[in-house]
Design a protein around this nucleic acid. Structure first.
Lengths: 252, 252
DNA sequence: TGTCTTTGCGATGTATACATGTAGCTATTC
DNA sequence: GAATAGCTACATGTATACATCGCAAAGACA
């Protein structure tokens, strides 16, 4: 009842889930700065949610990797070095590569292959339309998201799917993490075209049961994010285009 | 105060940690059978710990993969199909392979390389002594554990290390999961020798900065567990030799 | 003036009380 | 006899009260 009515997607969910969503949002938006201790009473007051559900949410966010425990108790918002982001991207690529390989070796269902193809086609059409406006960009994010989601599901392994989701948990590691800066780059069209060509090639590899090829492609596909990371660092003004950009610590 | 004095490793830790350790133990020992809902008041009574820390522990164990949420609320002990265990082993191999590759490509520290070699030498000496008694087996477990631990640390990446730890979280996926059944097999000496030869080869590959070789070796190394899993299924009497063996559900 | 000590505030960790919702059982009716 | 409806009991989700521990600030003493 105490929760603000402006909160989105907060209806008909438990306080714990609401707290988790809200806190993640606050962290990614920089309302809770990196390195700062999270005070339970303060965020309880801020969100209008009592301490108990806040507590549960904090534990989940720690497991998620967004928070780190403090020795004397409680949590603080984690800061991410460039090296850590690079490694997180590599982890995602490796896990998505595993999913692709297993999908190829074990055979993906016709439904999943169709869904993957549909995503590729959608993205191709969007790219044909030239410079993206906000609506087309949202459609692109949606299709890209769905491609990676269906791919993880294509190996029909809950265990793998779960682990891939964990690999994507860090905001910078997610397939959509750097999408906004990617789309804002001068060579955006080319990069996005290459990315979608990789999508298409992966679907082809899975269809032909070529596991090693599918795996290598997904790994390389993830490494596009490395370039985007570099671009982000070179042009600090775009740091606010990526979720949680403020959490990046710029060390030597 | 209410906790049983017989509890091991329970001194000087928070109630939450105690609860997590104790609950994990109870699940792995079969005290809390797979599929059964975990009743907070019951385990609170059983452990002498109040509901709040129990709650925190349950959330952590869910993130760990040992529990699954129930739609109407609460958690139940997860059952693992043979396929899921197979996939979990594959995930571990993939992540340890990543760690090995990065260690090779980036170069491992002299200290880590020495520590890895020390583990290999220790295991070799233990194998030379013939049939293992309980003490030698414990030493073997210790050395094997340490090898995998140091390997994960050798890429100097907290992110990778963390993800490897997550991959090992499921009891069957851990490097030591099937060690007892492996040591009890008739061809135990040969299998353990092969495993240690793989250890040695990985160290060699990392030293020579041969990333692809190191990765392939760790993947194949993990797959030894597949054979052990088959052996376990063929001889149901050894199911109690592996931690959490009772959680395996035997479907067609 | 600097350092050490002490005091106080506020945080977390823990326990418990309360409300709501669900599942299972029983009784009644068709 | 079976099915349905209602009730009971117990579970979780939530809120809050309490104790302990850490940290910071202020004051006193050398």
């Amino acid at each position: 009842m105490g929760s603000l009515p402006s909160d989105p997607a907060d209806v008909s969910a438990s306080q714990t889930v609401r707290a988790q969503l809200r806190l993640r949002e606050m962290i990614l938006d920089g309302e809770l700065p990196a390195g700062e201790r999270i005070s339970e009473p303060v965020v309880a007051e801020l969100t209008g949610i009592s301490r108990t559900p806040i507590r549960s949410a904090l534990i989940r966010l720690q497991e998620e990797g967004l928070l780190e425990p403090i020795r004397s108790g409680g949590f603080r918002v984690r800061a991410f070095s460039v090296d850590e982001i690079r490694d997180a991207i590599e982890v995602r690529g490796t896990l998505e590569g595993l999913a692709a390989r297993l999908a190829a070796e074990r055979g993906a269902s016709a439904a999943n292959l169709e869904a993957l193809t549909a995503c590729v086609v959608t993205i191709d059409r969007l790219l044909e339309q030239g410079d993206p406006d906000e609506a087309r960009f949202a459609a692109y994010v949606e299709a890209n998201s769905r491609f990676h989601e269906v791919l993880a599901a294509s190996c029909e392994s809950e265990v793998v799917q779960r682990q891939v989701a964990r690999g994507n948990a860090l905001p910078f590691a997610s397939p959509n993490g750097f999408l906004r800066v990617q789309a804002a780059a001068p060579d955006a069209f080319q990069t996005l075209s290459i990315a979608n060509a990789q999508h298409r090639a992966v679907v082809d590899a899975i269809t032909r049961r070529e596991g090693a090829r599918a795996e290598a492609l997904m790994r390389e596909h993830a490494r596009i994010a490395h370039r985007n990371l570099q671009a982000t660092l070179a042009n600090p003004r775009v740091v606010d285009l990526i979720p949680g950009g403020r959490l990046i610590v710029h060390d030597g």
